[in-house]
Nucleic acid binder design. Structure first.
Lengths: 133, 133
DNA sequence: GTACTTTCTATAGTGACTATAGGAGCAAGG
DNA sequence: CCTTGCTCCTATAGTCACTATAGAAAGTAC
């Protein structure tokens, strides 16, 4: 397991260099050891952890949720109820957001369908936004 | 049409006082006239405009999109092609986001379903996030 | 040895607000 | 008239999850 520069870690994980440093500053990544010239160097564990973080972020989890999951990860033999809880709560949020967006998209489709592109004062889009529908 | 304080405008529109001042600072609302004691006062036009802004924000439109729509509103007899364009683009974004979230929710449901709550090291939620699924 | 790239720190900017501090105006009760 | 308490004022900083920029030092490639 050879040492990785921050740039190499970035390539391997798809997380930008600046973002890696940012993750360190907010405590998602531990401060790595440094070379003589003060450069950070990383190992396989950092790759794993960073991929975990990246995927969690892609799933829309907040930093705090990710920190909880990362803490969980340290105790492999414990039960994972916290993970279930975090995932369930997050799923609820996602489902809620989908419902909202579905309603919104439906509404947009209706008013776009109605709009003939003629005049601003009768435009159903603008009428809708004005609130005097 | 009597003059409204910022607090009354806030009540009528459901937009917080601080947010009204914020909207003024970013140019979504014109700076209103002031009383002798330097308080802002508003009229019906401000209520209408603010409701328009609030509804547009609820629809997830950005400040810039709202500014374009508000400019449009000033020319009631012009055709409303810009409004159509903004609405279409936004609908596309919403639909894209819905697809992403649907996929995400499905994935969460699968891994939650699989999770027996036993141990961290075998927890399907954490396995999924680790990326070695 | 020089030119280029990567990395370093520190700071500021993004969007769309929200929160806080410290004053000043104003309406109502005593 | 005066105090109490609410609303309002400005200005500044904080939120989240980054992104961008500046200026300097270190490493690499020819």
């Amino acid at each position: 397991m050879k040492a990785l520069t921050i740039g190499r870690l970035s390539e391997l994980t798809g997380v930008k260099v600046v973002t890696i440093r940012y993750y360190e500053s907010v405590g998602l990544l531990p401060p790595p050891p440094r070379t003589e010239g003060n450069r950070r160097f990383y190992g396989q564990a950092d790759v794993d952890r960073l991929v975990f973080i990246r995927r969690s972020r892609e799933f829309g989890l907040s930093s705090e949720a990710i920190k909880s999951l990362l803490t969980l990860e340290l105790n492999q033999k414990q039960p994972c109820h916290s993970a279930i809880h975090i995932a369930q709560e997050h799923l609820k949020e996602i489902e809620h957001r989908i419902m909202e967006l579905d309603a919104l998209a439906g509404y947009f489709r209706v008013i776009l369908d109605r709009c003939t592109g003629e005049r601003v004062d009768t435009c159903p889009i603008l009428v809708a936004l004005r609130g005097n529908t």
